[in-house]
Design a protein around this nucleic acid. Sequence first.
DNA 1: AAATATTACAACCGCGCGCCC
DNA 2: CGGGCGCGCGGTTGTAATATT
Length: 297
Amino acid sequence: MVRAPCCEKMGLKKGPWTPEEDHVLVAYIQKYGHGNWRALPKQAGLLRCGKSCRLRWTNYLRPDIKRGNFTREEEDTIIQLHEMLGNRWSAIAARLPGRTDNEIKNVWHTHLKKRLKQNTAPPNQATSTITQVADDKAVQVRQVTKPPQVTESCVPTTAGFENSIPSPVSPQQSSCNFSSSSTESSSILTYENRAAVASAAEDECMDSLESNWTQASNTIGFWPENLSGMDEFWLEALKEEKLDGQEEGFPAGSVMMDPTYQAPLSPLTFPVYQDDNMDFWLNVLMEAGQMQSMPEF
DNA sequence: AAATATTACAACCGCGCGCCC
DNA sequence: CGGGCGCGCGGTTGTAATATT
């Protein structure tokens, strides 16, 4: 069966919306809501198809839309979410309050794709790229080594921290900053000290970036059964992605936490901590009470 | 200053999904 | 159970604004 084009009716207007049309649409929706988009334009007296009205409302006129340029944090979040979710713009938009899927899609195609391309240098150039500019370096490091940044709804933004690099702290360096006590909350880095730790570890991480860390292709992850207290953001991602074929090797009921961020790691982008590093991190997680049992590999 | 190229973003298009009859 | 309909999503296009030559 062939679907009839949305705006096949003659006389329906296309193209940019006028302020008058906007006013009519907003006034109508404020008064009656938008239960039926198909019927709306006729009832509101607009010479538009329902689809056009819906698009105009959801992408532009909705009162909760945040206008203006994307912040660096928002852009970074988009990059990380895109890494995790792919071109699922609506899923990405759901994690960026006030931003629409269309807007995010646009900013991806016009800015971020380009930026990522610049930052994705061949391995033998990666180190020099990383050390260029602090701003770019932060992006590069997060892109290569970190699980996606959680959104503001998950982790409060700490002023000043956004410019310090949430580095993949090496076990040797970070161990001195962790309490091994499973009863103390200090077994997880605080916002106050993690920036310092990250900064201190940065140089070493740069050097060992390629040898000690691998990217998400060797993802480890699992489906958590005990969800209490877990970050909603990741849980949603976990549920959506279903973790097909990626949950093997981890016992049900375990949740891998990022000890630096106090947030569940994204099983889709979690970098593999190799060999002895892996053991170290698993022990940290065990001691911090974030895993109920050691996984078998 | 004019022509051309590039960028930014609003809007459109077609498809797939879910609901309802 | 299959078809029609409405809606939302992602890809693409059109065009205005801006930068470059």
